[in-house]
């Protein structure tokens, strides 16, 4: 069985702000990390590998530096990795991102694709299901448990607000894994050594079967960010600072506004 895992490099901090004077985005450092939700996707793949001897190949799309998260995945348990990187993908929205990835995944070949439930920078949870649609395979989102029922079917468990469902899904398919589905492993020093010689290939648009550049990046994106702006701030409130006894002040406010009775 061939499992492909899709991961993403995201900013380490979500502290982004807009300078109200100039409108310039201010980012708190340029540190990056692996999208934390992807750790559960990778662990799911490694657990299946341990049970059934699957081959786990990990891919990402991003700038050349995104190869770092692939290297990390190799140190955790992936058997191979490929980076999709091309300036012609710049400005891609969900559709253009999912399309580019689906082109890549199809060419690599798969029985099962595993994604994290969402990323911490985009927060849309949309790329996984769109990939599934482009590849014409079924998908299930927010998966908690996976097991192979037979060599053509996965048995999975999902949990949402109201229901806990057990589903059978036919391979090939795509799943997105919920947070807390498992306990992700850490990169290991042993694997760091044993995977040192694995080369991470970089693919560009020229490696995909659809080479029409207008289908990718900004030009392949139906949605466009018209403008960005700081959220509305209504300065209606009172700030109580330099208090001698802030606990007492809070108590007094709660009493004064009749949330508490103050005998």
């Amino acid at each position: 069985m061939k499992i492909l895992t899709c991961i993403k490099q995201v900013p380490a901090s979500s502290n982004v702000d807009v300078d109200p004077e100039t409108g310039v985005l201010i980012r708190d450092g340029k540190n990056v990390k692996m999208n934390p939700y992807d750790l559960y996707a990778l662990e799911t793949a490694y657990l299946l590998k341990a049970r059934s001897g699957a081959h786990v190949h990990t891919v990402t799309m991003g700038p050349p530096s995104a190869a770092d998260v692939l290297r990390e995945a190799l140190m955790m348990g992936s058997d191979g990795a490929t980076l999709l990187s091309d300036p012609r993908f710049a400005g891609a929205d969900v559709l253009a991102t999912a399309y580019a990835l689906s082109q890549m995944l199809r060419r690599i070949g798969f029985d099962l694709i595993i994604c994290g439930k969402q990323t911490t920078d985009g927060d849309t949870a949309q790329v996984g299901p769109e990939i599934a649609e482009f590849l014409d395979v079924p998908h299930v989102s927010y998966v908690r448990d996976v097991d192979l029922r037979d060599d053509k079917t996965l048995r999975i468990r999902t949990v949402d607000d109201r229901h806990e469902d057990v589903l059978d899904i036919k391979l090939p398919c795509l799943i997105t894994v919920d947070k807390d589905a498992n306990t992700p492993r850490l990169p290991s020093f042993k694997r760091k050594r044993s995977t040192r010689d694995i080369r991470i290939e970089t693919w560009t648009l020229d490696d995909l079967s659809d080479k029409e550049a207008t289908h990718y990046g900004l030009r392949g994106s139906p949605t466009q960010v018209e403008s960005i702006f700081p959220p509305e701030r209504q300065a209606t409130g009172r700030i109580h600072s330099n208090l001698e006894n802030p606990g007492k002040t809070l108590f007094d406010i709660l009493v004064e506004q009749k949330w508490l009775r103050g005998d």
Partner: peptide, 27 residues
């Protein structure tokens, strides 16, 4: 703070214990 009606500036580890004393005192 900018959307709150009241903001108490203080460390919760100072605020809560004294708040709790007042709550207790007032039954």
């Amino acid at each position: 703070a900018s959307i709150s009606h009241h903001t108490i500036v203080g460390d919760l580890y100072d605020v809560l214990p004294t708040l709790n004393d007042h709550l207790k005192k007032n039954g």
